[in-house]
Write a protein that binds this DNA or RNA. Structure first.
Lengths: 107, 107
DNA sequence: TTTATATATTGCAATATTACGATAATAAAC
DNA sequence: GTTTATTATCGTAATATTGCAATATATAAA
């Protein structure tokens, strides 16, 4: 099958899983870390920095955008991709809430 | 291709992405939440509770075990799957460290 | 307008994931 | 020992993801 049965889970569970899923690729982790360490954030730098093809980086950026973690602005002929800090913090809070309400209670 | 190029990333980036990835499925989120709310934690309950086939649940449990989040003990003819709280907290800390060291610095 | 540069999109091949039925393995109950 | 109940594993089909070359798009520079 290969298809995740989203309909049998709650919206919260699906959202949470989606956040985790988008962060669940080393290229996307690396992209976020790289952008975070720059003063400028130009997509083309990422291609050299990360070592994946331009098309692949563009695809990963799209996924990060899909959950609102990045926003991009046209900056001349390049793009300025930046971390959306409000969204970033909101997602961190949701993940922590999940971690904090899930506890061991046996063995 | 379909194969993630792990070799171009650091071990830390790969580990972090792996944690996110394992948590990136609603069934696994639901399994953790369910186990957390029970006093006992029997796999067979999960099949009814989650609504996926027994083989599928078993597969998801295996993935959660792979990053050490669950440990199972034989309990008669069933299994007692529990959350490994030390590991749980350790992973939460690693994820938070990632979130806290990644900051917005432009736009 | 043409050319050069930067990013996005499309199409495709390879691999991974999800899900499940069938079957094996294990242990309790009889 | 046989049966029953529970979980794991195998095999397989369907779908998703990853990655890249080629191409399209958009803007700046010449």
């Amino acid at each position: 099958m290969g298809i995740t049965k989203n309909q049998i889970f709650t919206d919260k569970q699906n959202d949470l899983a989606q956040f985790f899923k988008v962060l669940g690729h080393p290229a996307r982790v690396a992209i976020l870390q790289y952008i975070s360490n720059q003063n400028a954030c130009i997509c083309n730098d990422l291609v050299e920095e990360i070592g994946l093809a331009q098309a692949t980086i563009s695809q990963h950026l799209k996924e990060l955008k899909s959950i609102g973690l990045l926003h991009g602005e046209v900056e001349g002929k390049s793009m300025c991709y930046c971390i959306n800090i409000e969204r970033w913090t909101a997602i961190q809070n949701q993940l922590n809430s999940f971690f904090n309400t899930t506890k061991s209670n046996c063995c």
